[in-house]
Design a protein around this nucleic acid. Structure first.
Lengths: 147, 147
DNA sequence: CGTTGTTAGTTACAAAACCAACTAATATGT
DNA sequence: ACATATTAGTTGGTTTTGTAACTAACAACG
């Protein structure tokens, strides 16, 4: 046995963070191409759009918490989406530190398109798995993600 | 039902690329802190070190293919690891475009440490899962990653 | 009140990633 | 043999991210 093999006796190829990273990259590649190509959006922007589209108007802070994004990322993504006329900001009267973010009809259209498209990609990804396997996989990932 | 909910009828929260991304981030966070704190290494550097440690000496090109990293990333990671005296380069006589990369004893030491540490993190991550679930999870991820 | 602390969000600067152009060595086709 | 194409790897310039410092609004406590 050569030197490099007995340094550690288990197969680090199955190292979970590594596998997850590769799987994450592989699985988002084609979808990313779609939203980037069609709307010139970054992943951060898609995530913000996605949260507003899926859960309705909310503040940047709420997006930070729900989407696990740092506030600077959200801040920039919001600015970019606003420039694309996909969302509007409105200051809250009760606390002027908060801005409520809401999709414009253009933004909702983009969301509807991307959500439908995403659904397709998701189905394609899961095509190899049975219903039950898919359910388990999602639950396992949620557990690892600490949802 | 409000406008944003009927745009798409399934729960995009379970969107696989999204789940995978979050799980990947969550799972690598503490390990990343370890190798960054202890060796000042970036993820790209850890990946290169990992491949050389696990599979033995090889060229940058082989690392690109095996680790799915772009050649510029590998090139810079190799330069950084060389600066840290973790690897050496040697031109091949038969084709002087190729450089064989090999870990130094210092590099092997770092690898052994990180591999052992990684193993711990991995076990901790998998603590919630049964043997069989863990096996299935890895296989599923490998399938998605197209290994 | 008024000082101090906290929270939402932005901005500035540094680190890292991405992409395209580049060099150098080898392979291929005429 | 020589022009052209490919391959391994590096470098430069731009984009994106990360980090820390900042502003503005509110809260809490004396």
């Amino acid at each position: 046995m050569s030197d490099h093999e007995d340094a550690v006796d288990f197969d680090l190829r199955g190292f979970l963070p590594y596998l997850l990273n590769i799987a994450a990259e592989e699985s988002s590649a084609s979808f990313q191409q779609y939203y980037k190509g069609r709307y010139g959006m970054l992943r951060t922007e898609w995530r913000v759009l996605f949260h507003l589209g899926r859960y309705g108007a909310m503040t940047a802070k709420e997006i930070c918490d729900r989407a696990r994004m740092h506030k600077t990322k959200v801040s920039r993504a919001v600015a970019a989406l606003q420039a694309k006329r996909f969302l509007t900001r409105s200051q809250r009267e009760d606390d002027r530190r908060h801005e409520t973010l809401a999709l414009t009809s253009q933004g909702r259209q983009a969301y509807a398109d991307l959500a439908a498209q995403g659904q397709q990609f998701d189905r394609a990804l899961m095509a190899d798995f049975s219903e039950e396997e898919a359910r388990f996989l999602r639950q396992a990932l949620e557990r690892i993600a600490k949802f």
